[in-house]
Write a protein that binds this DNA or RNA. Sequence first.
DNA 1: CCCGGTCTTGACAACGTTGTCCAGGCTCTA
DNA 2: TAGAGCCTGGACAACGTTGTCAAGACCGGG
Lengths: 349, 349
Amino acid sequence: MSDAARTARSPQPRYGNRPTMKDVAARAGVGLKTVSRVVNGEPGVTAETERRVQDAITALGFRRNDSARILRKGRTASVGLVLEDLADPFYAPLNRAVEEVARDHGALLINGSSAEDPERERELALALCARRVDGLVIVPAGDDHRYLEPEIAAGIATVFVDRPAGRIAADAVLSDNFGGAREGVAHLVAHGHRRIGFLGDRPGIHTAAERLRGYRAAMAAAGLPVDEAWVSLGPTDPGRVRAEAERILTGPGAVTALFTGNNRVTATAVRVIAGLGRPVALVGFDDLELADLLSPAVTVVAQDAGQLGRTAAELLFRRLEGAQDAARRVELPTRLIVRGSGEIPPAAG
Amino acid sequence: MSDAARTARSPQPRYGNRPTMKDVAARAGVGLKTVSRVVNGEPGVTAETERRVQDAITALGFRRNDSARILRKGRTASVGLVLEDLADPFYAPLNRAVEEVARDHGALLINGSSAEDPERERELALALCARRVDGLVIVPAGDDHRYLEPEIAAGIATVFVDRPAGRIAADAVLSDNFGGAREGVAHLVAHGHRRIGFLGDRPGIHTAAERLRGYRAAMAAAGLPVDEAWVSLGPTDPGRVRAEAERILTGPGAVTALFTGNNRVTATAVRVIAGLGRPVALVGFDDLELADLLSPAVTVVAQDAGQLGRTAAELLFRRLEGAQDAARRVELPTRLIVRGSGEIPPAAG
DNA sequence: CCCGGTCTTGACAACGTTGTCCAGGCTCTA
DNA sequence: TAGAGCCTGGACAACGTTGTCAAGACCGGG
């Protein structure tokens, strides 16, 4: 009766008329605060009173409304994760790792994809800030993050991962893209290759630029010239990559080995090489599932995406617990996984 | 000064002293509600007033606190997703699809992994309910979901995906596991195989049981006997799968073909077969990246994980918009992707 | 010039929870 | 047995926002 009356006069939806602590208190014949104490396991309630409250909670199907709790306490116990694409298998372990660390700290994870669109990254990050997430882990799509300055100043801890922040000082956890690419290319050089191509992502992307830099460094260190016709950076859709791979791999002056700048490029390159009828040595950045079963097996420079996520999330929570030192850049090593390189025929030239 | 005073006397953290609408109102010299109107783009504010408010917002770096808004409005504009493992590439497109649909409806996505642990699934789902997510998409780990009854009754829309709910009536979006497995096994039969093994996930998992049923149906339809030594269900860790695959594939009465029950099993089986030195026909449930490049290429029964997620999320939002009809079970077709089947040598026996 | 209407604005309560503070009943000791 | 002190319980305000409602400004027509 009183419920019906309240429903009728209330202008708000009242969460589908769920019972509140007030309802529980009324039913148990105790005060509001006593219910709060029981729900939160606070001391100062006799066993008998607690039992009465518990019975009322069960009977009514009460569940605490965390929205109200959050408003009152000022902490949301949630962190946001913005990445390029939730569907990309490379980011799946990163996603899981961040979730796992958040869980260890009692926080939930809200996440979303930027789809490589800086505007969408911005919208998403700011929406998360409006929700007052305690912290933010971002795989940046854009290169200007000044829009986050007021949020960071207001206390939202922020850690960038995989790529650095643009135009603001912020923590970042990266792979050693330069060193990894240099090592991968050096591996090809050590196997006698002198004409090595580079096929990578758009040059505006930090990781792509760093990997290209590593390629050039390895070539220079070996005293090998780089024909710019061997180098191609751009979108990683299979169409472009296929065309560029064919261009670099055929015709006069074709390369004998290829270094590919990420997992998507590598997958397409493997297909092109398989159709080529001529052996080409291939080393790719990022490991691939089943890469050991391809013929020839693909040697890769592997990043540990899970470790990237874990490190970033742990840094985030250290900030949340009060760490105040200057923005830090953590660089994680890559690992060269040599597969079937013995079978790669050294180049003739 | 007044700020400092408030900070000192306030017992609450006040979100790192962020400005509120009250602060904006004071600075702009307008009422609280007018700020609210400007922030929400409500009509009835003169251009001049709006400008003053906007200036104050910019100057103070104000951003609306959605926690308070949510509390007031009773809708969180967020949905929860509980799945087995965020790091599993199979679920990545599902995750993304749910996010995409949520985004189209202006909602954020909170997600987490159950790690195949029913208790953890329960904790996570109930935590999301406490946050008052508008709806829940669940890939169930457990087989008893009665714990959700009060939540569903209280208005949290819930859709199960990949596997059905246990002991409650709820919407579910599934793949046609039975039909897909039957078709895959029939493909092997059509190529002359009579001794076909089945290597799958734990029998308690609905999808594993359905796929086994499909296998048996295809064998029965072809009039072929099933030797129980050819069938193995259990955990999908590489150790067990490898041992079982070797057992089924070698020795007297060994099978000439294998049907594998999911992507993880298939990957391990491919490795075992590669080391066997004898050709074995393989059809697997779930597609694999680069499966076309393996030798022999692996024929698969592919599910569209993205479509599963999209369908589930759309059903969820239809419920949120008021659809009241009885719980529905949607079954999506699978697709047989034949690869290099010409190269699979038919069995001798 | 006055009345009715529209338009803009702000005061106020409420959403459901938790922190503060005080009151009343009890036990323990002198 | 009385007073001090502890334990339990509840009234109240506040978190930051939005819905309701009413008041004032302004306009035009009679």
